[in-house]
């Protein structure tokens, strides 16, 4: 077996194996150390007592790993269920995320549809125009709305000027402003998958439906909508999932009037310095998110299977 070629052969394999090991291990351990381990810590702290120290929780790692994991209690979770602030925040986050997803779909679909119907040579440009805002600062895009929506803002001035209102509307610091902010920042995520689905749609299918006696409207309901369902579902998840944990938009546009869990977590952590409760809030947010994430994954998988 190990003739003339045996020895260099083995060395070659050994170097290759080492390369392969480094290739896999480097990103792997990076993510283990900076993604998975921190999560374990969050779970751990969610199950420990608040303490007036730095770090403000007990027991810490200095007490030894075994102590950290043995002295667990569910006090923080009990606390979350007792204080209705948290309940309300979770429910309100779900409601805001759901309503904004529906609104984004209602506004996004016609745009995606029109893009898919546009002449071929426009489409690349239209696509770029949809993606371009995504590259610009999220914070700035949300900030831009403050000047528009405030009581003395441009929208009120405009409506007053055309005579539609006599009293300025209060939009900023309400849920409406949060909906506008979410629709505005996340609409590209809705448009792109729907556009991708509609662009693939064979125009002759619509013609065939009309040829078989469908009206325009009916063909749209019976052919276009079902065939773009994959894109619709993907778009909805892509808006719903980040909207649920959103922090910047409710903080800037929602004021104190809007309760959202991302904001509660941030405040619990930085203002109240109650780390165990903040961690417990994070754990529950994660648990709520797992369902839509798994549904989203399954939808993507099904799309891929259908194509392959």
């Amino acid at each position: 077996m190990f003739g003339l070629v045996g020895a260099p052969q083995l060395a070659f394999c050994w170097i290759n194996d080492l390369r392969r090991f480094v290739l896999i291990a480097l990103p792997y351990f990076w993510l283990l150390a900076l993604f998975l381990v921190p999560f374990v810590i969050v779970f751990k702290i969610a199950l420990s007592d608040a303490a007036l120290a730095i770090p403000p929780y007990m027991p810490t790692m200095k007490d030894g790993l075994s102590a950290m994991f043995l002295q667990l209690d569910f006090e923080n979770f009990v606390f979350l269920t007792e204080d209705d602030l948290y309940w309300k925040a979770y429910l309100s986050s779900l409601r805001v995320a759901f309503i904004s997803t529906v609104l984004t779909l209602l506004f996004g679909y016609p745009i995606a549809y029109a893009m898919a119907r546009a002449p071929h040579e426009w489409r690349a440009t239209l696509m770029m125009l949809i993606i371009l805002p995504f590259w610009t600062s999220f914070l700035i895009r949300v900030y831009a709305w403050i000047g528009i929506l405030s009581t003395e803002g441009l929208l009120n001035r405009f409506l007053f000027w055309i005579g539609a209102i006599s009293e300025p509307l209060t939009i900023l610091n309400t849920s409406t402003a949060v909906y506008i902010g979410i629709v505005y920042t996340y609409i590209p995520f809705m448009i792109l998958p729907i556009y991708a689905a509609l662009e693939r749609l064979d125009a002759s299918l619509i013609e065939a439906a009309e040829d078989l006696g469908c009206s325009r409207m009916k063909a749209f309901w019976l052919i276009t909508i079902p065939l773009s369902k994959g894109g619709i579902v993907a778009g909805c998840f892509l808006v719903f999932i980040p909207a649920l944990g959103e922090f910047v938009i409710p903080s800037l546009l929602g004021g104190s009037g809007t309760l959202m869990i991302g904001k509660v977590l941030f405040e619990e952590f930085f203002s109240n310095r109650d780390w165990p409760v903040a961690s417990a809030v994070a754990v529950i947010l994660l648990l709520i998110l797992i369902v839509p994430i798994i549904l989203f994954q399954r939808n993507e998988q099904r799309q891929q299977d259908a194509e392959g």
Partner: peptide
């Protein structure tokens, strides 16, 4: 898909 607040906190 992780909310930034959770990634940041952890």
């Amino acid at each position: 898909v992780m909310p930034e607040v959770i990634t940041g906190l952890s």
